[in-house]
Design a protein around this nucleic acid. Structure first.
Lengths: 184, 184
DNA sequence: TCCTCTAACGCAAAATATTTGCTTTAAAGC
DNA sequence: GCTTTAAAGCAAATATTTTGCGTTAGAGGA
């Protein structure tokens, strides 16, 4: 049912995938969430509904796929000159994005899907970004350095937890405290 | 669309709510998730589909409501004689339950819903349980005691984060470490 | 207790969405 | 080029969701 989206990456298959993803993203800005339907997306993408059902299974999985895609980092992490600064900048931007209405929706889309696959993509991306930040810190000679897992547990976990359960309670101060405590 | 489920708690309304909740829970054990539909649930509950749509809006919200209900603690927290022991026992049981297939599903149901309300119910329940554990520790004279928020960030957050993103990587050791580090 | 009022339910028709069998198309590999 | 085949299109069959309207059972007052 749900398989690798791009088996034939070269041609039509890839075009359809792009068209559908783009249709989801633009429609999501135009219509309220509970009006977003497969036939609507299909029409905008210039594709038949059955194509979407055959490829993604159902709306939920499609939305999870699109959300996971959008959560892949597209901009490089800013280099502020220190590990703590880089973390605050990067995680702060993530927090900013995810407290917005579309961000909250993306989070719900990925966390609500049945397949673990999309969530693992997101985790992998976060690991990768943190690894990058740590490598730069190492190159600067900063020490001692925490592990990636420690940063995930100490910073990304509380951030994500609150993004889901109490987004209104989040603040930059909060974030800075988690980071400081984790680096200590 | 989505309003307080029990406006008239006394009679028919409450019966319908119970019947529908029970239908969801039993059907969820009998049929694969992608076969669970509103008409199916309605039939099992002895209710008309439109009743469910009018009351819960759609399947997603219904599932979130049921999941949040099931996540309310029904058994009192075990008293092991120490704060650390109590935390390991309670969070360990939670971890156990949530790594199972139905547990993962419940988590996805609550985190995937649009309305923050159900998730706040869950957070409130967790806060309450932790508060209970802390009160007992205080009565024992244990000191220093962490705050509830500290336990949420230090223990429940990493636990929940991994339950969503990498459930297979979880272990009791992991949990014990988070608890020990948080109490330190 | 009885009466009135109304939120919530049932029913069934209409509108939408999903599934499926079969045909057609367009990349991949030779 | 030619062949092969995954993926897309099309359209009919199902299934689900929405909606208007009549009915019912609790709530609250006389």
């Amino acid at each position: 049912m749900v398989e690798k989206p791009a088996v034939r990456p070269g041609g039509r298959s890839a075009r359809v995938q792009r068209a559908v993803h783009e249709a989801v993203i633009t429609l999501d800005k135009e219509v309220p969430r509970d009006r977003l339907s497969v036939p609507l997306i299909a029409e905008r993408a210039g594709v038949t509904p059955s194509t979407i059902y055959r490829r993604w299974g159902n709306l939920k999985e499609l939305l999870a796929d699109v959300a996971a895609e959008r959560l892949q980092p597209d901009t490089p992490v800013a280099d502020t000159g220190s590990l703590e600064g880089d973390l605050i900048a990067w995680a702060g931007e993530y927090m900013e994005e995810m407290t917005s209405t579309p961000g909250q929706q993306m989070l719900a889309d990925t966390l609500g899907s049945t397949s673990l696959e999309q969530r693992q993509r997101c985790l992998q991306a976060q690991r990768h970004q943190l690894q990058l930040i740590l490598s730069r810190a190492e190159a600067r000679g900063e020490t001692p350095l925490p592990t990636v897992e420690r940063l995930l547990d100490g910073v990304m976990a509380p951030l994500t937890y609150r993004l889901s359960y109490a987004p209104q309670s989040l603040s930059k101060d909060n974030l800075a405290q988690w980071i400081a405590a984790t680096l200590r």
